[in-house]
Write a protein that binds this DNA or RNA. Structure first.
Length: 547
RNA sequence: GGGGCGGUAGCUCAGCUGGUUAGAGCAGGGGACUCAUAAUCCCUGGGUCGCGGGUUCGAGUCCCGCCCGCCCUACCA
């Protein structure tokens, strides 16, 4: 058996405006999964992109008085630029308007589905902002409820896709779990929708209505491929599906996991339309569709059009990348919308990262400096120091993340007796890998971070309980036994810190590196303690995050 | 109109297949300690579990109705 291959994607957002925090949630979750799978040894491809071909983009560009391509390029840049402030380990970015792989792929996908495509007359009231038809009853005062604009009467012949013929197969695939939809609430929703009957859906627009923007229907230049068809295709077009490239075989056809992260608003497209398209085209389906709910800002719906938005890049610049990531991973429940309030972000940053984690590492490193001149004592003995700088191996983490007893962390047999009272801490360290693994298998980011956090809590508690400063005092007073005990305590603590750095890698990559640096001896000596996080005092712009 | 999901302590949330006194974190109050970023640790939570019925020996946890919020969806006149 070869190395497991895992393909992870985010949705590709419209680029009619700059990115907001809602997308940051999705892409950070995806990033955590990607990093986690890499640590497990999987081959991972983590992909995102931008949906440039939406008519919304055209309209937004017109409103801004900018050429469409130029406008789209500008916003797409802002999305792609999220990598830095959010610390995203993205492997590939596809832009549907510019990437030559995309058009070729979409065209091939269209042809592959030819048996299910047919022309049909259609007419109705259409809102370009929503890119959908409305019935008169749905309108408020004759205007689009969403945009407040007057929909236009559209009558044309479009291409339709025979979604209806896939209802039974889709239902079976989803209810059997072969196409896994998480959380289960969302899966049930999809099953209910399918059970209610599926209608064929329109997959093209007249070129005129699309203002010439988008990918023409192969062989029918009067029509442009519907943006959803186009956009969903990105998951394979970026893999060179259009040219039958190696990536397609490696990451789609032959991948062990094909994981899509999506927002609840586009569940249907991903869990029904997209799989049906793939079935039609004779392609494998995604294995997992992970659905997140929405973020609001100060109780108001985040919406580009209403101007209520939170710029994740600005937030990261203001409060720090990992503070933003931490809030997203730690506070957002898997079901239910979450209100973003900057005070809560600050509270998480201060209470947990600065006071909890940062202070823990700082006090441990400081103690080793104060009591041992920066030399980490050797494990299980009262004399000598570590011969090598500690790494993941010392924490027992590097070998895997299974929860099985066979992979329990080897914290050193002598520590248990030399460091009484550390059972809770050691248990937290031992259990963390399994708990994290289990949580992320279920895409439960809060549960995963909680498992990491148990170590922080236990470590701080242990210090207060064992009172190393008193051991140090006894040692100074000539108590030789105290020396051995203090050694053991410090070893347990520095190991816990290293374990933290290790476990935190998928969640807070920057912090993880800084912890590792703090806890790694150079020339037998730890570097001087340096705060991991600065406490955030002013909840207003102006402050700068720590380096 | 239909479907789905939420509505649990001031705030943010856990509560598996129904079962002894409904939990955690934060905030608030009290105390301890000093290694550490005025950090940490301990003690302190008496909340109609949205409302009203019902099933049951027993329901936050199942059933029905209703209210509020959000998502999706719908040609009824």
């Amino acid at each position: 058996m070869t190395t497991p291959h895992t393909y992870i994607t985010t949705t590709i957002p419209y680029v009619n405006a700059r990115p907001h925090l809602g997308f940051a949630l999705e892409i950070v979750q995806a990033d955590v999964l990607a990093r986690f799978h890499r640590r497990q040894g999987d081959q991972v491809r983590f992909q995102t992109g931008t949906d440039d071909n939406s008519l919304k983009n055209v309209l937004a560009a017109e409103a801004a008085g900018v050429a469409v391509q130029e406008f789209v390029d500008g916003n797409a840049e802002a999305f792609i630029a999220l990598r830095e402030p959010l610390a995203l380990a993205v492997d590939d970015v596809i832009r549907t308007s510019r990437d030559p792989r995309h058009r070729a792929g979409v065209e091939r996908l269209w042809r592959a589905c030819a048996d299910d495509l047919y022309r049909r007359h259609y007419e109705g009231l259409y809102c370009v902002g929503c890119e959908q038809f409305y019935t008169p009853a749905e309108l408020t005062g004759g205007r689009c409820p969403e945009h407040g604009t007057e929909p236009q009467w559209v009558a044309e012949e479009n291409w339709f896709f025979r979604l209806s013929r896939y209802a039974d197969r889709l239902h079976e695939l989803i209810s059997s779990g072969r196409l896994r939809i998480e959380p289960v609430e969302r899966r049930n929703e999809v099953l209910g929708f399918i059970a209610g009957g599926l209608q064929d859906f329109s997959v093209s627009r007249s070129t005129a209505r699309a203002r010439g923007w988008g990918i023409p229907v192969p062989g029918d230049p009067g029509q442009v491929i519907y943006v959803w068809w186009d956009a969903l295709g990105n998951y394979i077009t970026a893999l060179d599906y259009g040219t039958g490239g190696e990536n397609h075989r490696r990451w789609w056809t032959g991948s062990d996991r094909r994981i899509h992260l999506v927002g609840k608003g586009v569940l249907r497209f991903h869990a029904v339309y997209w799989p049906a398209m793939l079935l039609s085209a004779g392609q494998p389906l995604p294995t997992d569709i992970v659905v997140h709910d929405y973020l609001t800002a100060n109780g108001r719906k985040i919406s580009k059009s209403s101007g209520v938005t939170v710029d994740p890049a600005v937030l990261a610049g203001e409060y720090g990348t990992d503070v933003v990531r931490w809030w997203l991973l730690r506070e957002v429940p898997r079901v239910g919308d979450t209100d973003f309030i900057v005070d809560r972000l600050i509270a998480r940053g201060n209470d947990e990262l600065a006071n909890g984690l940062g202070n823990l590492v700082n006090r441990v490193v400081a103690m080793i400096h104060r009591y041992r001149d920066g030399h980490v004592p050797a494990a299980g003995s009262g004399t000598g120091t570590e011969t090598k700088a500690g790494t993941g191996a010392a924490t027992g983490i590097g070998t895997g993340t299974e929860a099985e007893p066979g992979t329990e962390v080897k914290t050193g047999a002598g520590i248990g007796t030399g460091a009484p009272g550390s059972e809770g801490l050691q248990a937290a360290c031992r259990q963390a890998p399994g708990l994290i693994h289990a949580a992320l298998t279920d895409f439960e980011f809060r549960r995963a971070t909680a498992a990491v956090w148990a170590i922080v809590d236990e470590a701080n508690r242990y210090i207060n309980h064992i009172r190393p400063w008193e051991l140090a005092k006894a040692e100074r007073d000539g108590d030789f036994d105290a020396t051995a005990r203090l050694d053991a305590v410090l070893v347990v603590l520095i190991r816990a810190c290293r374990a933290l750095g290790d476990h935190l890698t998928p969640f807070l990559p920057d912090t993880a590196i800084r912890i590792a640096q703090q806890c790694a001896a150079r020339d037998g000596k730890l570097p001087g303690p340096r705060p991991l996080f600065r406490r955030i005092t002013a909840p207003e712009p102006g402050s700068t995050p720590p380096p």
